[in-house]
Amino acid sequence: MTRYRTLIMSCLMAALMAAQAHSQDAGKPAKAEVDASKLKVSSLQVPAEGSSQELMDFIRTAQKVQPTTRKEYLELNRKVKAAADKVVAQEKDKTSQVYKDALQFSMHTGLTLMGEMKPAEATKAYQPYADYFNNLKQWTNSDLQLAMQVPQVCEQVDRQLAKKAYGEVARALLQSGHPQLVEIATMFKGSQQRLDLIGNVLDLKGTKYDGTAFDLASLRGKVVLVDFWATWCGPCIREHANIKKNYEKFHDKGFEVVGISIDEDREALDGFLKQHHIPWITVHEKGGRHPALQKYGIQGIPTMFLVDQEGKVISLEARGEMLTQLLEKTLGK
């Protein structure tokens, strides 16, 4: 089983550095290093009439800039994307490495910007990605990274757009016929199903830590937090403090927690539970392979569903202060 890890979105600099590795100009003398400490986002100007080489040089220079605010980070993305789009538009040889690198720059930076858009604008910005994936004949690692990120960014913006993205990217992955890509496509189909859970009954069964059978339906009448987590997941462990606080406050009012551990190492789970005295239900399958991971397309942890007394999902993001607010709303203060 591919180990599920805490989801960390790749930042702009990582994407730029990955593409840069393929875009060095062989045989040309090295240029003097730019003093990164003197570069500012506001001082960067995209060449108005630059050649493809000049535009790519601009992009490499932009890599050296360290944004100090979110506003600067987004502005840097806009400028890099503008330069990359110019290369894509003017490069006649669509098989050249320069064209391919520029296209990757454009798509990765565009994805960052899409995450800041309103649904209607993001829907329009998403379409080139769908077209790109549909026309792919051979998938690269960069393509796969992009395919993993696009629906996730859409999910941040609009649930309906995310459902569309998961479905369309899944179809493109299936067309490849590659076993690993087909596996990811299956997960994306599950993600579509997850996004439809709000207002619907959550079907969840498994094996409790003590080896007995578990069925979420047995907890009807209670408000239940379903927490997908692992002992090696830092954010999961930090969130446990918040879960405990709410468990102590609301348990007597009808609040229950079901922690679904995806730990592959049973001994690590044993040690953690004994050390931390977790009072709620823990579900664990051999190797951490709970069927819900694929069924609901869970790509990162912690993932937390909150289920009401009728067994219907009322939130897919019941974390932090939002968990307290939802419990106060359903169970009272």
Rank of each mutant, 00 (worst) to 15 (best):
I237K: 13
I237S: 07
I237P: 04
I237V: 15
E239V: 06
E239M: 06
H240C: 04
A241Q: 14
N242Q: 13
N242R: 07
I243Y: 10
K244D: 14
K245H: 11
N246C: 11
N246I: 02
N246G: 07
Y247L: 09
Y247G: 10
E248Q: 14
K249I: 11
K249C: 06
K249F: 03
F250G: 00
F250E: 01
H251I: 05
D252F: 07
K253P: 02
K253T: 03
F255T: 00
E256V: 01
E256N: 02
V258I: 13
V258P: 12
V258Y: 07
G259F: 09
G259K: 10
I260L: 11
S261H: 11
S261K: 08
S261R: 09
I262S: 00
D265A: 11
D265G: 14
E267S: 14
E267C: 02
E267N: 12
E267I: 09
A268D: 07
D270S: 11
D270Q: 14
D270L: 09
D270T: 14
D270G: 08
D270I: 10
F272P: 09
F272Y: 15
F272K: 12
F272E: 09
K274G: 10
K274H: 12
H276S: 10
H277V: 01
H277C: 00
P279Q: 12
P279G: 11
P279H: 12
W280M: 06
W280D: 05
W280C: 04
I281P: 02
V283Y: 10
H284M: 00
H284C: 01
H284G: 01
E285K: 06
E285G: 08
E285H: 06
K286C: 03
K286V: 07
G287K: 04
G288F: 00
G288R: 02
H290C: 07
P291M: 04
A292P: 12
A292I: 11
L293Q: 07
L293F: 00
L293A: 04
K295R: 15
K295I: 08
Y296K: 03
Y296I: 00
Y296M: 03
G297D: 11
G297Y: 10
G297Q: 11
G297R: 08
I298W: 13
I298S: 11
I298K: 12
Q299D: 11
Q299E: 14
G300W: 10
I301S: 05
P302M: 04
T303P: 06
M304W: 01
M304V: 13
F305G: 11
F305W: 14
L306P: 10
L306F: 13
D308I: 01
D308R: 07
Q309S: 14
Q309Y: 01
Q309D: 05
Q309R: 15
G311I: 09
G311F: 13
K312M: 08
K312H: 10
